[in-house]
Simulated scan of single mutants.
Amino acid sequence: MIEHIVMWRLKNAADAPRFKALLDSCRDLVPGMLRFDVGIRREGLEANVDVVLVSRFADAAALDAYQHHPHHKAVGAELGAMRQDRHVLDFDVQDTTR
């Protein structure tokens, strides 16, 4: 399994709810997407970014299908105009259910 974590700092932090809504529209786009959680900065909790995506894919092929999906590409273009910084980490996860 592949964990796909993306964090964004926005040009305008007030855009975080709209940014989240756009990301949420990418949920369940492809087979093999096992987890898709979007969080936004909350007052009173420590944060260096405004929005985070934590997602999990069955394998690298499922992640690749997600990244190349036309809807994901369109959303990514819209999000790109709203972001100041983007950080990504993809890593292998051991399946603890086996």
Rank of each mutant, 00 (worst) to 15 (best):
I5N: 13
M7C: 08
R9Q: 14
L10I: 12
K11R: 13
N12L: 12
A14S: 14
A14C: 06
D15K: 08
P17M: 11
R18I: 08
K20A: 13
K20H: 00
A21S: 15
L22Q: 06
L23G: 08
L23A: 05
S25H: 04
R27K: 13
R27W: 04
L29R: 00
L29C: 03
M33L: 12
G39P: 00
I40E: 14
I40M: 14
I40V: 15
R41W: 05
G44A: 06
L45D: 06
L45K: 10
E46V: 14
E46H: 15
A47C: 12
V52M: 11
L53D: 02
F57L: 02
A58Q: 15
A61G: 06
A61H: 04
L63S: 01
D64A: 12
A65G: 01
Y66S: 05
P70V: 09
P70Q: 05
H72V: 04
H72Q: 08
A74M: 07
V75W: 02
V75T: 05
G76F: 05
A77R: 14
A77Y: 04
E78F: 02
E78N: 01
E78Y: 02
L79S: 03
L79P: 00
G80L: 02
R83S: 14
D85C: 00
R86T: 05
V88Q: 10
D90W: 11
F91W: 12
D92E: 15
Q94W: 12
R98T: 05
R98G: 12
